[in-house]
Design a protein around this nucleic acid. Structure first.
Lengths: 133, 133
DNA sequence: GTCCCATAGTAACCACTGGTAACTGAGCAC
DNA sequence: GTGCTCAGTTACCAGTGGTTACTATGGGAC
């Protein structure tokens, strides 16, 4: 614990993290971004706030439990806000914070690459399978 | 807040083959990129080929089994090449392909964001913990 | 000859997480 | 009192990530 805090402090005081240091908190950020649902939630919220069920419908194939986990983690990390209205039936709005919205750029770059290179990756995969056989 | 970047992301996700469709192969690419070790391996190889042990040392905290899994998956997807020299002790070089190297740009954007925003995320996390208590 | 070393993994095992299906609670309409 | 909506929760299961220990091979030291 002490060493971890020291590493975080060092990384922060140096101004920049080093993702290759296992104790560097940048790893934490990469883990969060690495979660595919986080990426899709950011994409689903760039247009504005959405409710829980709307998110579920917009992001195909996500189970409610997993969506809840993702949203809570993102709220904890300051990427979005969760607003509960005391109504029945309940209403909960999710909206990106400035920090969360600022992630949209890097994610767009990534999804752009993905769109452009899906074919190459699938081709490599097919070829590899063919070689194995 | 919602700017050109947001519009870009929206165009990507709602226009041509979108990542919100659970059956879209873009999901496959996001899963691969989402693996934190993949990101670090790309980062470790942009300067040139490395051997297995060199990768292990450069990327702190990775278990050999997991590194092997990651490297095999990346080889399968055409992101890197694996060259075995019939020597004793064994020597295996890993090098990025053009496809793998082209991922360096998007990943650099992402890690830049991560390193710049680590402090904000940790602050949000601390505040959240404080509010809970 | 025997012992030890380095490299690039594998094997066995465990814990945690991601995913599925079913259930909850609160008020309102019927 | 039955059913409807929304936003989850609960119980459960499989797969994955991670840890530690072990392996194969030949070269050099003794």
């Amino acid at each position: 614990m002490v060493t971890k805090q020291a590493a975080e402090l060092r990384a922060l005081t140096e101004g920049r993290g080093n993702a290759f240091d296992p104790d560097c908190p940048t790893r934490v950020v990469l883990d969060r971004i690495g979660d595919k649902w986080t990426v899709l939630v950011i994409g689903a919220l760039v247009d504005g706030p959405r409710r829980f069920t709307a998110l579920r419908q917009h992001i195909g194939g996500v189970a409610p439990k997993v969506l809840t986990q993702t949203l809570r983690a993102m709220e904890r990390d300051g990427l979005l806000t969760r607003t509960v209205y005391a109504q029945v039936p309940p209403r909960v709005d999710y909206a990106l914070t400035d920090l969360g919205a600022s992630l949209g750029g890097p994610i767009a770059v990534l999804t752009d690459w993905a769109e452009l290179n899906v074919a190459k990756i699938l081709a490599a995969r097919d070829e590899f399978v063919a070689q194995e056989a």
